[in-house]
């Protein structure tokens, strides 16, 4: 058993090395496929980042009556922070609201004149609430309306902003679904390419397989070396792909960060290097072996 395995490994390596041009073209196709997987992994990161940024733009505001005390509002903030659906709560005092308003409209003389005419600070203190998911805003709004401090609330702007919130989350969800679908189609194309390439390289050995059978080789003794070649192709393609992507990510990272500030592709690549390496190795070796198995099976039937 051990001797047979040793001989299968020897023939696998021998055939891989002797048919260097065929092996090289299989590795090339596999590198293309693994590059696609790497690109998908990285673009998935970019998508996630984009969706997160989009979702961070959505919140609801709870405005409190003029006569509400700051201590009471801060108490309500504490209570809200304990709700599992609430991701973040921010208190905006009357003064801060005015400051924000002035900063936003300082160049609009008509609004600034109106503010002076009204006199004092007409704005209300508020709490900005960010939930984890779009559906949770309705629950949070319902909770506020029925809570013990409902009387202190002047208005909740959830109903006015509901269409915007729903739209943003629907876009996020579409981006996610689209990404998955796109990845799936590309992966399918890549898999069929590699199957075709390995199939072609084994077709090259069709006559040899026939001779091996005629001199009494068992199916395993014939199939084994092709599986070993599949493993070698997967391994070398993985190493090559990572050697290509490591410097590529390094050089592109800065440019991507200009487009999407805060997204560090190179950092992601380095921090997840071993995960990416093993995903590639599993894909490369797995696909190499499965496609070899299927292609040889045709000639062993």
């Amino acid at each position: 058993m051990f001797i047979s395995l040793q001989r299968i490994l020897k023939y696998g390596w021998q055939d891989f090395w002797r048919n260097r041009s065929v092996s090289a073209s299989s590795i090339f196709v596999m590198v293309m496929m693994l590059s696609l997987i790497t690109s998908l992994l990285l673009s998935q990161q970019a998508f996630k980042f984009l969706v997160l940024r989009l979702q961070e733009q959505v919140d609801i505001s709870v405005y409190f009556r003029e006569d509400s005390f700051e201590e009471d509002i801060l108490e309500i903030k504490k209570e809200l922070a304990l709700i599992p659906e609430v991701k973040e709560v921010e208190y905006i005092s009357k003064e801060k609201a005015l400051e924000n308003f002035i900063q936003l409209h300082q160049n609009d003389s008509r609004i600034m004149d109106s503010l002076t005419e009204v006199g004092g600070n007409p704005l209300l203190a508020s709490l900005n609430i960010i939930a984890f998911e779009a559906a949770q805003y309705a629950q949070i709004s319902g909770f506020l309306e029925k809570s013990s401090f409902a009387e202190s609330i002047d208005k909740i702007d959830y109903h006015q902003r509901k269409p915007v919130i729903d739209r943003v989350f629907s876009i996020s969800s579409e981006i996610n679904t689209g990404g998955i679908l796109f990845s799936f189609i590309l992966a399918l194309v890549a898999v069929s390419l590699i199957f075709n390439q390995v199939g072609l390289s084994i077709e090259h050995a069709k006559k040899e397989i026939e001779v091996m059978r005629l001199v009494g080789a068992s199916d395993w003794f014939i199939r084994g070396p092709f599986l070993v070649q599949g493993v070698l192709i997967g391994f070398f393609a993985t190493v090559l792909t990572l050697l290509i992507f490591l410097p590529l990510c390094f050089f592109l990272s800065a440019k991507i960060e200009i487009l999407l500030p805060g997204l560090d592709i190179f950092g992601y690549f380095v921090n997840n290097f071993f995960t990416i390496f093993f995903i590639h190795l599993a894909f490369g070796i797995g696909l190499g072996m499965v496609s070899s198995w299927i292609a040889v099976r045709k000639y062993l039937a």
Binding site: A205, K207, E208, E210, V211, M212, R213, L214, G216, S218
Partner: peptide, 20 residues
């Protein structure tokens, strides 16, 4: 088949040697 063929030694008309 391997059992049978291991007991036979065949000289084929077209040799059928492993080219590689």
């Amino acid at each position: 088949l391997p059992w049978l063929r291991k007991r036979l030694g065949t000289v084929f008309q077209d040799y059928k040697l492993l080219a590689s």
